[in-house]
């Protein structure tokens, strides 16, 4: 871990100005992913801005009937919030499927969205990785790829996004509120937050330099039955091989987002039109263009079968 200076920010403006003032600065909140990566020098900030004091730790109703979730709300608190449990069960379920109890106590809403891939080649600094070291190549391609992306990947990167929470956020059409160093704020639809790898896998989100997530807003509840199914070898404390989050209405329509298969939460709105026709039809559209490896081709069947189970469960 490289040496860094540390400050506590006491206002969003102070945080933003610190980010601009100092080159190579990073915000830190929960720290559960950032410190992990800093120990390996995959992340090497020279200045840390502790944003835990900014007060973004509330969950509040919005005038539109939704919920505004402060960026610093811990995963445990978000999953346990009564309104979330009642109206956004998918989100609670996704959160509770992730990490472990003690990690969820620290990990924040914004940090969860921004967590980086678990590709083992990304984590091994002896190996080439375009995400870690742009232009160095991708050791995962042609290597051990059981966990890697089957769709939306590129010749530069086949990593997946590891978040469970983000799958729910994507299905719920959350929006992300940010504060930029110039004092402006903006709303980013969750669909536009994460990027596909393309030729620039090191660019994982559309956030600008020094841009700070301040909250995530959920639109008013959709109703329906919420199901999140995470498939993994070990029963807990493991990243998904595949996860399926779905909101299913009485008439069989609904929404589906899938984790563990792409560089970002994977949702294809056109595929959702097929929901009344069943999992096979949905999966065919959802996975159209998939390019699995020999190691991970099972994920195609697994998505379809898991989705079928989810739809069955939603019917009750």
């Amino acid at each position: 871990m490289r040496s860094f200076t540390y400050e506590k920010a006491h206002s969003p403006a102070a945080a933003a100005s610190a980010a601009v003032r100092t080159s190579n600065a990073k915000f830190i909140a929960g720290g559960t992913n950032l410190l992990d990566l800093m120990k390996l020098e995959i992340e090497t900030p020279s200045h840390l801005i502790d944003v835990n004091g900014l007060g973004f730790d509330k969950i509040e109703p919005t005038p539109e009937g939704g919920l505004r979730i402060g960026a610093l709300v811990r995963n445990t608190a978000l999953a346990a919030d009564e309104r979330v449990r009642r109206d956004y069960g998918l989100l609670s379920r996704a959160l509770l499927a992730g990490a472990s109890g003690q990690l969820r106590n620290k990990a924040t809403t914004a940090g969860n969205l921004l967590q980086r891939t678990r590709c083992p080649y990304f984590y091994d600094t002896n190996q080439p990785c375009n995400k870690r070291s742009p232009g160095s190549g991708c050791a995962a391609i042609g290597g051990i790829t059981r966990q890697h992306a089957v769709i939306g990947a590129s010749d530069a990167c086949i990593a997946t996004h590891p978040s469970d929470m983000a799958i729910a956020m994507r299905a719920l059409d959350a929006t992300v509120q940010t504060a930029r160093p110039d004092g402006t704020t903006r709303n980013i639809p969750i669909a536009d937050l994460h990027r596909l790898p393309g030729n620039t896998p090191h660019l994982e989100t559309t956030l600008g330099a020094g841009e700070l997530i301040t909250s995530v807003t959920l639109p008013k509840p959709l109703g329906g039955t919420h199901v999140y199914r995470k498939v993994r070898d070990r029963a807990s404390y493991a990243f998904a091989l595949v996860s399926v989050g779905a909101i299913v209405q009485r008439d069989g329509t609904g929404r589906v987002a899938v984790g563990g298969i792409a560089h970002k939460p994977w949702r294809v709105e056109a595929a959702e039109a097929e929901m009344p026709r069943g999992a096979k039809a949905v999966a065919a559209r959802l996975l159209d263009g998939a390019k699995p490896t020999r190691d991970n081709s099972f994920k195609l069947a697994l998505v379809e079968r898991t989705l079928a189970a989810v739809l069955t469960e939603a019917k009750g």
């Binding site: 830190i28 559960t32 410190l35 445990t76 003690q102 990690l103 106590n105 620290k106």
Partner: peptide, 14 residues
């Protein structure tokens, strides 16, 4: 609350 003390900086615990 229980946390993993390896993934948090001491200076963040004032």
């Amino acid at each position: 609350q229980r946390i993993n003390s390896c993934l948090t900086l001491a200076v963040m615990h004032e």
